[in-house]
Simulated scan of single mutants.
Amino acid sequence: TIGSSIARKEFMLKNIAIKVNIWDIGGQKSFNPLNPVFFTNVDAAFLVFDLTQPKETLPELEIDYLTNLSKYTNECIAFVIGNKSDLISTKKELENIANHYKIKNLPLILISAKTQENLYDAFDLIIFSFLKEWEKGLTSKKFHGISKEFLNLINKTEEQLKDLFVNLGDVDSILISSKAAPQLTKKKISSSVPDLNSVTELVDYVRYKEKIEEFNKIKGQIIDSFDNKLTIIKDLISSLKRTPINSLIDTIDNTMEQLNDIKADFEFNLDSLLNLEKSEKKVKEEME
């Protein structure tokens, strides 16, 4: 994936609409997929690596993505996904990769995005797992049994879904919990460089400045993403103008699909920007 894309799925369970927002973020460093915006308020996550390049792609998941999930989410379900199983020639080779390349204590699922083997089942499993965990914390009886209702809807059993895991015996929990974030010492900032009376206050102030700089950098990247999408829209309009009449309807249909994707991406970036503003405001308040 280059950049980010969003898909939405809705289920009716117990006469209640359950909406699933699926964010697919690119792995390119130039896109900066590691900014905190992408890890805030995440309920469930697929950590995807390339089965044909496990040595190169799996460590990055553990070092970067898993670390950020642990840091920025309160609690979320996480599955490790080995993709491109269709490119592994033998079942034995696939088993060797699964045994040697995995993240400790996290469930592993092998899929092929190309052939779609286990792909939709993996989504069904993570949605079911979230609903089941969600039920545990409910006090209202209104949503009790909603995970079983989901199983009935997709016509599958829990055992069938869990058969996707290739290392279930090694898994302690499917949940990732965030660590306690370091607290900044509160101090009123009355000028650009406040009076600092101790080493602790100096360290806190440096952290504060670094955090604000990080926020500004991420906001700049989001704004750049807005600009890129506007450029794409201009290109789509130019393409429509050059389209022959006999193929105009098909081109319009394709353009509408792309515009809907761009609209979803705009909404995501706008939500990210608003969340970032809230986080920045909170950090500033902690320093007052």
Results as ranks from 00 to 15, higher is better:
residue 83 N to C: 07
residue 74 N to T: 14
residue 18 I to S: 05
residue 190 S to G: 14
residue 64 D to K: 04
residue 27 G to H: 04
residue 114 K to A: 15
residue 238 S to Q: 14
residue 176 I to N: 02
residue 48 V to F: 03
residue 96 N to H: 15
residue 159 E to F: 10
residue 175 L to H: 04
residue 187 K to L: 14
residue 105 N to E: 15
residue 168 L to D: 10
residue 152 N to F: 07
residue 152 N to K: 14
residue 96 N to R: 13
residue 97 I to Y: 04
residue 189 I to M: 08
residue 107 P to Y: 04
residue 65 Y to V: 09
residue 168 L to Y: 09
residue 250 D to T: 14
residue 225 S to E: 05
residue 49 F to D: 03
residue 156 K to L: 09
residue 228 N to Q: 14
residue 242 R to Y: 05
residue 16 I to K: 15
residue 99 N to T: 13
residue 13 L to E: 02
residue 155 N to S: 15
residue 217 K to R: 12
residue 212 I to S: 08
residue 256 M to I: 15
residue 186 K to W: 05
residue 160 Q to C: 07
residue 101 Y to C: 06
residue 27 G to R: 02
residue 38 F to C: 09
residue 22 I to F: 03
residue 34 L to G: 04
residue 5 S to R: 00
residue 200 T to W: 08
residue 58 L to A: 07
residue 79 F to A: 01
residue 82 G to I: 01
residue 106 L to R: 02
residue 170 D to C: 10
residue 277 E to G: 07
residue 158 E to C: 12
residue 195 D to E: 13
residue 68 N to E: 14
residue 55 K to A: 06
residue 262 I to W: 00
residue 280 E to C: 10
residue 234 K to P: 01
residue 244 P to D: 10
residue 53 Q to Y: 11
residue 221 Q to E: 12
residue 66 L to A: 03
residue 217 K to I: 03
residue 94 L to Q: 10
residue 247 S to A: 08
residue 154 I to T: 08
residue 52 T to H: 05
residue 189 I to Q: 10
residue 237 I to T: 11
residue 123 F to N: 05
residue 270 L to D: 00
residue 78 A to C: 15
residue 18 I to E: 06
residue 214 E to A: 11
residue 55 K to Y: 08
residue 132 K to S: 06
residue 136 K to V: 06
residue 31 F to D: 00
residue 219 K to Q: 09
residue 4 S to R: 00
residue 58 L to W: 03
residue 125 L to Q: 01
residue 94 L to A: 08
residue 98 A to P: 06
residue 224 D to Y: 07
residue 211 K to D: 08
residue 232 I to V: 15
residue 203 V to W: 10
residue 45 A to E: 01
residue 38 F to L: 13
residue 49 F to A: 06
residue 181 A to I: 11
residue 225 S to N: 08
residue 108 L to T: 02
residue 102 K to V: 05
residue 15 N to Y: 05
residue 91 K to A: 12
residue 213 E to D: 14
residue 95 E to I: 15
residue 139 T to E: 12
residue 163 D to P: 04
residue 94 L to W: 09
residue 225 S to A: 10
residue 70 S to Y: 13
residue 32 N to Y: 13
residue 16 I to F: 08
residue 15 N to H: 11
residue 227 D to M: 06
residue 214 E to N: 13
residue 262 I to N: 00
residue 123 F to T: 02
residue 249 I to E: 12
residue 11 F to Y: 13
residue 274 L to W: 09
residue 259 L to D: 07
residue 63 I to H: 12
residue 257 E to V: 05
residue 213 E to W: 07
residue 220 G to P: 04
residue 10 E to R: 09
residue 90 T to N: 11
residue 95 E to Q: 15
residue 242 R to E: 13
residue 222 I to E: 02
residue 209 K to R: 09
residue 236 L to R: 01
residue 227 D to Y: 11
residue 70 S to A: 13
residue 183 Q to H: 09
residue 159 E to Y: 10
residue 53 Q to V: 06
residue 112 S to G: 09
residue 42 V to N: 02
residue 151 L to W: 06
residue 169 G to V: 07
residue 236 L to K: 00
residue 207 R to D: 15
residue 38 F to Y: 15
residue 86 D to V: 13
residue 117 E to Q: 14
residue 188 K to V: 10
residue 89 S to Q: 13
residue 71 K to Q: 12
residue 34 L to Y: 10
residue 131 L to N: 04
residue 262 I to F: 00
